[in-house]
Structure formats: C-alpha cells, structure tokens
Amino acid sequence: MKRHLISAADLTRDDAVLILDTAEEMARVADRPIKKLPTLRGRTVVNLFFEDSTRTRISFEAAAKRLSADVINFSAKGSSVSKGESLKDTALTLEAMGADAVVIRHHSSGAPHRLATSGWIKGSVVNAGDGTHEHPTQALLDAFTMRRHLAGAPDGGSTHHRGPGDGTGRDLAGRKVTIVGDILHSRVARSNVHLLTTLGAEVTLVAPPTLVPIGVERWPCEVSYDLDAVLAASDAVMMLRVQRERMNAAFFPTEREYARRYGLDGHRMARMPEHAIVMHPGPMNRGMEITAEVADSRRCTAVEQVTNGVSIRMATLYLLLGGNEPAIAPTPATPAEARTEETRKP
C-alpha cells in the first residue's frame, strides 16, 4: 500500500486485490457479537468534510470506530472555514492535534493531493471525494460488491445474484461493467474506470453526449450513447445520479427525456443477463435514472454497497495505519516524494 489513497489510478492490481481481500475479512467482523477490533487503538482519524455527505462520512466514522480509532468529525459548515480559513491553516491545525489520518472530502478537485503532497501534515490522507476528480473508496466498494457477485464461482464463472460468494484472491478479469449517466461530473465513474480496468474488467460508459467528459477517448474504456445496445452484454450496470447541483448549464432537454433514454426501468432490466446486478452509489433519484421497481428489486445492490463500504474503509484504514506510524517513516516527506514513497509495502 501507498501511504495515501488519493486516486484509484495509483493502485496496482495487487494493491487493489489486497484491499478487497482485507475487506473480505473485515466484513466477517460485522457478523460477530462484538463488532470491534483493537487494531487502531490510540490512533486518531479526522474526517475533514468540506462538502455535504451522509453515507461516506458515516461509513468512514463507523469503519474507524470498529477499528478502535478515535474519530474527530470536522465539517466546513459552522467551523472556522466559514470564517475564511484556508486549507493550509486547517491542515496545520489538524497536524497540531496529532491526526494520524485525514479523510478529506472537498469540492475542489485536487485538494486531497495538495494535502498529501504539501508537507503540511505527516499522517495518511484518504480521498473521500474531490470535486469531479476521484472517489477511490467508492470504486473499491463497487469492485468489492461486483467481485462478491460475479467472481464467486470456483471456476471463475458467474454466480447467481442472490448468492454472493467469496472471491478472495480474485480480480474481475473479463467482467463487463456498464456505467450509465452523468459521467462528466462523476468522480465515482472516473475512479471506477481506473480501478475496474486495473482489475481486468471491461468498462463501457453510457451517457448523453453532453455528459461525456472531454478527453474520454484517452480513458481505458468504451463509450456508447445507446443503453439498450449494451445492456444484454453487461455483468453489472452502474447507474449514476444526475447531479443537479453541478448542472448550471442545461445538459439535456428535459428530465423526462433523460429518464426515457438513459433511465433503468423494469423492461430494460429484463434485457440484462440473469446473473447481472444493478448498482447505484446513492443517493438515488427514483424516477430519474432508476425506477422504484428496479431500485427495490433484489438485483439492485445499493444497500449492500453501503454495508460493503464500511468493510472497504476498514480495510483501507487498517492497511494505511495498521503498521508503522507514518511519522516513523524514514523519508521526510518532501512534496514531490510524498505521494509515491512506499513506506508500507503489503
């Protein structure tokens, strides 16, 4: 593992499989009467959230607490940030309080990278979503969910969507994943394209042309504008939320038209292979990108993804903080080195 988790593109296949395998063991803790491990006792994890979030923050908080770390929640609203404090001064404050890890969500792309490489703080930085850039733990939990459903059979073949298996040690080689919706604004899509490709899956993006980012031809994936054409060949279909809050311009004529062309309803779902799953990172806009019928069907893994999120974040925190303290690491973090130095190989 690297010292920070900034981008899903930084992870090698082995890193990613290690995180997924570790998460598989963490998931078992949830079945125990005492859902707590002493592993990160005495470590402090700061949740630094500059943007609204419920599930990601709660998920990180639950993960850190299950590992016995102390959690400090910092949200920009009602803090000194609203008085005009800079990211640097906030970071220095957290460093002075002895944060071992900072989980950061920020509306600006690149803020976690700045935090990790500036030398302001010595601890690990975990990107919990930055602007329209990346959301690596979401991609990891999506990959984890897919692996449980799609890589569970001993022969590597598909398993039925009702019986998630244990895919420990496996990647997603040959699995076909379709990501549908607002790719332009989606950090989830970006992280997923990187991670799923690293894990061997074939990714197809489906969106209205206005919601496909410039430069997508350089991404390691296919792009299609026709949802019906790709559904039949998909092992997993990931529906993205239409991010109204990021849409100052009009990207499609009407919501109704979007829902008809790019929304997933019962008829479309019926065209997917029997084993295929429907995923959604949440929060869902029912009636927009996904109908209630699909959202409530047993093929939809949205709730399971939330559960898996805690396991993935436990695994991430364990692998970043479970070993030597970053402060003990011999290399003093100069801005250029901090991101690539590997103080803790798996």
Binding site: E25, M26, R28, G322, G323, N324, E325, R344, P346
Partner: peptide
Amino acid sequence: LDITMYRDDLRLGPARTLART
C-alpha cells in the same frame, strides 16, 4: 482464529495481510 489484528507488534512493521477467522 486469525490473531493479526490483536498482535502487540503491529506497529513494528508494515500492515500485515489478514488470514481467515
């Protein structure tokens, strides 16, 4: 019974790979 997360020497080395409980 995997004992990795209960070890007293976790901080002396890199994070260890977990085994199955």
